[in-house]
């Protein structure tokens, strides 16, 4: 580990990985909530065209990618908001147009080798420069700040767009902000994860976090933790195995997802076998139901004919019986 940290490029790669692990889940949770999990993938396609323009013209590919991705994000959101049936096809044209243009321009660029292209598509630990890192840090700070301050509103709009509109929230503005945040995150991630895999780190940590959380706030915390852990370890694995860092990170994120899926399944089975349900319960316990309420380990049991009923989902669990003295 000390050897690893003594290498300049590894330190830069690790810092970039932590920035990615932090920002991608913070933005991705709203994409999951809006069932637009794959939109980041499309933006990655278009960012490739931006990268290629940068390589071709000798400009920093990070900046050209940022411009392309943000422009695409705004266009995509406006097309989506129109709600036309043809929107789907229009998006396909934009996404594939982006990646096709990127590959063609890359082939024409003086320094556009196939190895370099692979690095942009699937991530590479050797490519993060010091100046990239400064740009990434600034962009990541913006993403973290905006998602933190606007979290309740982004949550509200993603949760129920119609209600948000009716109550007077500027829904279109928040959707545009989310689209731009997604584009910025794609660019922050392009060195370490790669443009074809970035969507995975926006989605998978959140999918994992859903399995072990009971609230939105907790799921966001878990997703960030999983995101940072997977991207940092992925970079280290990539160093020792000489593999593209994006691939290593995404495989780790999938491993975490599968492990937590198994855990959640076992936990549910154990709960079912240990706890007796009162399934045929046509009465709903509540503060005014007349049954005695007992605090029990962070929840409330209702004393019902000598049984302790604890609300669980849409049924009641039997939490033992109490015999009248």
């Amino acid at each position: 580990m000390a050897e690893l940290l003594s290498l300049d490029f590894m330190r830069q790669a690790l810092i970039a990985a932590i920035l990615v692990g932090l920002t991608a889940p913070l933005v991705g949770v709203f994409l999951v909530q809006r069932r637009m999990s794959l939109i980041g993938d499309g933006m990655g396609h278009i960012a490739l065209a931006g990268v290629a323009v940068g390589v071709l013209t000798g400009n920093s590919p990070v900046w050209t990618a940022l411009i392309a991705a943000v422009a695409a994000a705004v266009a995509i959101e406006l097309i989506r908001a129109r709600g036309r049936t043809s929107a789907d096809v229009v998006l396909a044209v934009i996404f594939y147009g982006g990646i096709a243009l990127g590959v063609v321009l890359f082939a024409k660029a003086p320094g556009g080798s196939a190895g370099k292209l692979t690095g942009y598509l699937f991530g590479a630990i050797l490519t993060t420069t010091r100046s990239d890192l400064i740009v990434f840090a600034i962009l990541a700070t913006i993403v973290v700040a905006v998602t933190t301050i606007l979290r309740p509103r982004l949550f509200a709009v993603a949760n129920d767009e119609e209600y948000s509109r009716a109550s007077g929230l500027p829904v279109t503005a928040y959707n545009l902000i989310l689209a731009v945040l997604t584009a910025v995150t794609v660019v922050v991630s392009m060195r370490i994860i790669g443009l074809l895999l970035i969507s995975a780190l926006m989605i998978l940590p959140n999918a994992s976090a859903q399995l072990i959380s009971r609230s939105f706030a907790a799921s966001v915390r878990w997703a960030v933790l999983i995101g940072v852990a997977c991207s940092a370890s992925g970079v280290i694995v990539s160093y020792y195995t000489a593999t593209p860092s994006g691939g290593a990170i995404v495989l780790l994120a999938i491993a975490v997802f599968l492990a937590l899926t198994a855990y959640a399944g076992i936990r549910a089975r154990v709960h079912r076998s240990r706890v007796i349900h009162d399934d045929r319960h046509d009465h709903e316990h509540g503060p005014d139901c007349g049954h005695e309420a007992i605090d029990h380990d962070g929840h409330i049991d209702y004393l019902h004919d000598g049984h302790r009923h604890a609300p669980h989902g849409s049924h009641y669990d039997e939490h033992g019986s109490v015999h009248p003295r």
């Binding site: 949770v29 999951v32 909530q33 809006r34 069932r35 309740p152 509103r153 949550f155 509200a156 993603a158 949760n159 129920d160 119609e162 209600y163 948000s164 109550s167 929230l169 959140n206 859903q210 959380s213 009971r214 609230s215 939105f216 706030a217 907790a218 799921s219």
Partner: peptide
Amino acid sequence: SLSNAVRATVTEIVATGRL
């Protein structure tokens, strides 16, 4: 019309009405 794609508590949903 609530999205159930992510976890959310009763309090978290009701709090959106206050925004």
